[in-house]
């Protein structure tokens, strides 16, 4: 009797579980809010201001997706995640997507059951040291104490780099960028290592950025991009093509200034398809016809977002480099909208 009750309950629970799973798109639409996993605070990429309004390069992507799906870029709930909590937050369904300096790697894409929707920043791992230490190359770091965020790719790269160069180091594990910053400034470590973009953003927030240098060595490839749960390709497509829409918009010269004009129709059929004047691209993946118009209007095209959040005119001052359009010698390349 005990057993039959047990299995009866099992079957009942199984049935309800079967009904409960809707697609992420339906969930987001029903909720009216996009849950977007961002980092806990990295000025330029994702950080809240004094009023709790988030802004930054990664935040702009959350806004673009919210605009494409819900028609309103402000319908986003930002969920701060650390290097350790981010993937669990995504796979457990706490967030619908991650836009958080996360490196696309094989095991994350396969074993950790995520799907990377693309790359919004091509990066690499670097080191930051105090200028007065006199260090000019990462090869001089033998025996140093290095602050490192746990749960990141950079943690593994660091171990590999020191091993292959026959050097030793003392890892000082930190949980977030804020803690790393504090330890580094307190002198608990000689060098701080993370993605070079993260270093630039961290340094820009210092009172004395000129007293810190980022060493020339870039020891890894860190393609950073938005991630979604494995298994919901429709939602993956939406995030992927929202990113591509922003990139394509820059390539075709669609900006937040001229988009209203261009959305009335142009000579260029590719722009027309992108903006929904021609064809039915949006509805093919469950969105409105003008999804891309809304996404681009949220914060401008990829180039505009870059310039406004982390570009050379901001304190962070990152050059486009690899992140320029393919037509400008960079790697940003959106497939055709057709």
């Amino acid at each position: 009797m005990k057993k039959s009750v047990f299995f009866g309950t099992l079957v009942a629970a199984g049935l309800t579980a079967g009904f409960a799973s809707a697609t992420t798109l339906e969930d987001v639409k029903a909720r009216g809010v996009l849950n977007c996993g961002v980092n806990t605070g990295l000025v330029g990429f994702a950080a809240p201001d004094a009023n709790g309004n988030w802004s930054g390069f990664d935040v702009a992507l959350c806004k673009a997706v919210a605009a494409a799906v819900l028609g309103d870029p402000s319908k986003v709930k930002y969920v701060p995640t650390t290097g350790q909590t981010r993937f669990t937050a995504l796979t457990s369904g706490e967030v619908d997507m991650l836009a958080r300096n996360s490196t696309w790697t094989f095991s994350r894409d396969t074993d950790l059951k995520m799907d990377f929707a693309g790359v919004n920043y091509y990066d690499g791992q670097g080191f930051m040291v105090r200028k007065d230490s006199g260090i000019t190359s990462a090869k001089e770091l033998d025996g140093a104490s290095v602050c490192i965020q746990t749960g990141t790719t950079t943690e593994m790269n660091l171990a590999d780099y020191f091993k292959s160069n026959n050097m030793t180091y003392q890892p000082i594990a930190v949980d977030s960028n804020a803690e790393g910053e504090q330890q580094y400034l307190a002198g608990a470590c000689d060098a701080y290592t993370t993605d070079a973009s993260g270093l630039a953003a961290t340094r820009a927030a210092y009172a004395d950025p000129e007293n810190h240098i980022i060493l020339p060595e870039i020891i890894s490839k860190e393609p950073l991009g938005p991630a979604v749960r494995h298994g919901d390709s429709q939602w993956g497509d939406i995030v992927r093509w929202t990113l591509f829409a922003l990139i394509a918009a820059e390539e075709y010269g669609v900006t937040s200034a001229n988009i209203d004009e261009l959305a009335k129709g142009t000579e260029n059929p590719e722009i027309n398809r992108l903006l929904g004047v021609e064809g039915d691209l949006g509805p093919m993946t469950g969105l409105e016809k003008d999804w891309a118009v809304k996404a681009i209007k949220a914060g401008g095209n990829y180039g505009e977002i870059f310039a406004a959040t982390i570009g050379e005119s901001t304190p962070i001052g990152l050059a486009r480099g690899l992140n320029a359009q393919w037509t400008q010698g960079g790697l940003m390349y959106a497939p055709p909208f057709r």
């Binding site: 099992l10 059951k113 298994g231």
Partner: peptide, 17 residues
């Protein structure tokens, strides 16, 4: 208990883990 175990198995399966 059964529901917890079953829920876990279900969710792992959905994730493909």
């Amino acid at each position: 208990a059964g529901w917890l175990v079953d829920n876990t198995i279900q969710n792992l399966r959905v994730l493909g883990k």
